[in-house]
């Protein structure tokens, strides 16, 4: 069947991408090795964002709070409570999931632009709260997660997360797991309901689906994925700071997703990679790198209005998930 063939192609492509990222870890020069590790973590953040924005069509301007919930949840439990790495990682994810539940219950009473503004304001409240409790959070300066506590003991083995090779593989594992989860989710019945909600919420409701419950589930999964990325960021890179909770970090995943292609599985990775490398290369040639990034965004959107992968899917590869 045609559907099965395209599913096979799709899964094959994603396995190939993971394999390529793994192979890259052996050949990349050290700086790019480190940069790609960071990009994979942030692309995971973008995938979490994409689940809500791309598939359900809910534009949030507050996802920095979920990333930051994971970041602080993990970072502060290591810093103040001396938790082990796996426990702190789970703690960070838990913080994000609970926060997503609460925010979802409140914010989903709204839709469209009101949803956008409400999420932005809740994120602002979260950001200011971090500043307000500066004695524990380090406020705007942030805190360094001590190097010695960033070692993970699993079974009998120990993994030093400050070691670049270990860090790269942990980041890749996180990215691969979340990619698989997202792929399975969007191809499941749940995923189809989400897309149906995006296309026509009223009709979906009439068909007997509880759209609120489905949207709430989507917010929780999305927030949890973003928190996982945040928790990984704190443990892998050793710094928590309020700038990761600022509105800038709510806009960035939106930008990465739109650039790479909303509602495409690999769009977040493509968008994050593109933004990072354009910034990195442009800033080594001119101090006016913001100008280059700005022009690139505009030129990009003029020729790829649906993002890179979105446009490719529309024009050439219909089977792209």
């Amino acid at each position: 069947m045609k559907g099965e063939a395209s599913a096979l192609k799709a899964y094959g492509l994603h396995v190939a991408v993971i394999g390529l990222l793994f192979a890259l870890s052996f050949v990349l020069p050290p700086y790019h090795h480190g940069l790609v590790a960071r990009i994979m973590v942030l692309a995971t953040f973008a995938m979490g964002y994409n689940l809500l924005f791309g598939y359900v069509g809910l534009l949030s301007l507050g996802h920095a709070m979920f990333f930051a919930a994971g970041l602080y949840g993990a970072g502060l439990s290591v810093y103040h409570l001396g938790w082990s790495v796996p426990l702190a990682f789970a703690g960070g994810i838990g913080c994000g999931a609970v926060l997503a539940l609460v925010i979802g219950l409140l914010a989903l009473r709204t839709s469209g632009v009101a949803f956008m503004i409400v999420t932005m304001m809740f994120a602002q409240v979260f950001y200011l709260t971090i500043l307000y409790f500066a004695r524990w959070t380090g406020g705007d300066q942030g805190l360094v997660v001590p190097q010695g506590s960033r070692v993970m003991y699993l079974g009998g083995a120990s993994f030093d997360l400050t070691n670049p090779a270990v860090r790269y593989r942990v980041a890749l594992a996180l990215f691969a797991i979340v990619l698989a989860v997202v792929l399975v989710l969007v191809r499941s019945g749940f995923g189809r309901v989400l897309v149906a909600i995006r296309e026509n919420e009223e009709r979906t409701k009439m068909l007997g689906f509880d759209t609120f419950a489905n949207k709430l589930a989507a917010v929780i999964v999305s927030g949890t994925i973003c928190a996982a990325a945040g928790a990984a960021y704190a443990l892998l890179f050793g710094y928590v700071g309020s700038s990761f909770a600022s509105v800038q970090y709510s806009i960035l995943p939106l930008l990465w997703v739109l650039l790479g292609g909303a509602a495409t599985a690999l769009g977040p990775l493509v968008g994050t990679l593109a933004m990072y490398y354009v910034t990195d290369i442009a800033s080594s040639y001119t101090s006016a790198w913001l100008l280059i990034v700005g022009v690139m965004l505009i030129v990009g959107v003029l020729f790829f209005p649906k993002g890179v992968l979105g446009t490719i899917r529309q024009r050439w590869l219909r089977w792209l998930p």
């Binding site: 806009i251 939106l254 930008l255 739109l258 650039l259 913001l290 100008l291 990034v293 700005g294 022009v295 690139m296 965004l297 505009i298 990009g300 959107v301 003029l302």
Partner: peptide, 11 residues
Amino acid sequence: TIVATIGLLYI
């Protein structure tokens, strides 16, 4: 237009 106006913002 969101992407384009973010680009405009940077410029």
